[in-house]
């Protein structure tokens, strides 16, 4: 199924990008070649401010800033800028319309727009913004490059904590501690993972992983989870194909049950929430339901024909690809 999901993401992505770009070109969304009128106030030397009416912008681009930005948009837009001969550079700020941000980004600059001054009438300047086309295609290209290196950064960033926790786990394994932990949780684990011997190291590693997740220790959870996968793979009769136990374990992990959703709380606090931890209970509820649903889904789906490992042509219940 991952094959189809992957293919779908890539194909839909590329086609949508092409479609969007063709549509933008056909409607001249970025008004290439049209002169935009601004008021320019010179403050000192080359520096100054650029002002234009929000209504004018809306009419020029046939958009509605009010509705797309949600909240109150001022009547006039004001940005700092600099003017050298016929080249004007308009600084981007928080209030810059997203359309202009896109124009700047596509031109390869995320701090300012470089425009050409065509005509001057008193304080009124008529400017030409950089020609903008193939916006989405360029964005896709950027995404390919930046996400590939992000993937490598993430993986390499794991090396340190990975090594540390694998070392600790080795100690726990050789001292027999993992078996003791596994034995404590035996009643639950034998129900969820009937195929795994109850004192197998995989059980201990999975318990450690879930415990780390519960405590919000993401740094520890991933290495412990990978250790658990390694142990599960030792019991996997068909290498390269996920075992039932692996899928159940994955489902538990993708539900992300935690007592402390630390990241969300931190962001809430940073944004000035009066009660950042109000989501403790709500997200525990949500993730708890997700965990139960994930385990149940894994258990039910593993019986479907489409997902069964071997096909012993019996009790055929047609499995639908999701």
């Amino acid at each position: 199924m991952l094959n189809y999901v992957w293919l779908g993401l890539v194909i839909i992505g590329v086609l949508t990008a092409a479609g969007n770009d063709i549509y933008d070109a056909a409607t001249n969304r970025y008004r290439n070649g049209d002169q935009f009128e601004v008021q320019y106030d010179s403050t000192s030397g080359n520096a100054g401010t650029v002002v234009y009416g929000t209504r004018y912008f809306d009419k020029f681009y046939d958009v509605n800033l009010e509705s797309s930005n949600g909240s109150n948009v001022p009547d006039t837009m004001k940005f700092s800028a600099s003017l050298n001969d016929n080249t004007m550079q308009i600084k981007l700020s928080d209030t810059t319309p997203s359309l202009w941000e896109t124009i700047a980004k596509t031109a390869g600059d995320d701090k300012q727009i470089t425009a050409t001054v065509v005509k001057r009438m008193g304080t009124s300047l008529f400017i030409l913004l950089p020609t903008t086309s193939l916006v989405k295609t360029k964005a896709v290209l950027d995404a390919v490059i930046s996400y590939s290196s992000t993937a490598v950064e993430i993986a390499l960033g794991l090396i340190g904590v990975m090594a540390f926790w694998l070392g600790i786990m080795k100690l726990a394994e050789e001292s027999g501690l993992i078996k003791i932990i596994a034995r404590m949780m035996r009643p639950i684990m034998t129900k969820i993972f009937p195929d795994i011997p109850p004192d197998h190291p995989a059980i201990g590693a999975m318990i450690m992983n879930v415990a780390a997740n519960m405590l919000g220790l993401n740094n520890a959870a991933t290495p412990l989870g990978l250790k658990a996968m390694e142990e599960l793979d030792k019991l996997n009769p068909k290498k390269g194909t996920a075992s039932n136990a692996m899928v159940v374990f994955l489902a538990i992990n993708t539900a992300g049950l935690t007592l402390i959703p630390a990241t969300a709380i931190a962001i809430r606090a940073a944004l000035g929430s009066k009660d950042p931890t109000v989501i403790l209970m709500t997200s525990f509820f949500g993730a708890g339901l997700a965990t139960i649903a994930g385990i149940a889904a894994a258990k039910i789906l593993q019986r479907l024909k489409a997902y069964r490992i071997e096909e012993p042509a019996s009790e055929g219940s047609g499995g639908e690809e999701k």
Binding site: M246, A290, L301, I309
Partner: peptide, 19 residues
């Protein structure tokens, strides 16, 4: 663990997400 045939993992994960 070099598993590339993931069987129903994506479906189970997405069901968990939706719930």
């Amino acid at each position: 663990v070099n598993v590339y045939r993931t069987r129903h993992a994506v479906a189970a994960g997405l069901i968990a997400d939706a719930v």
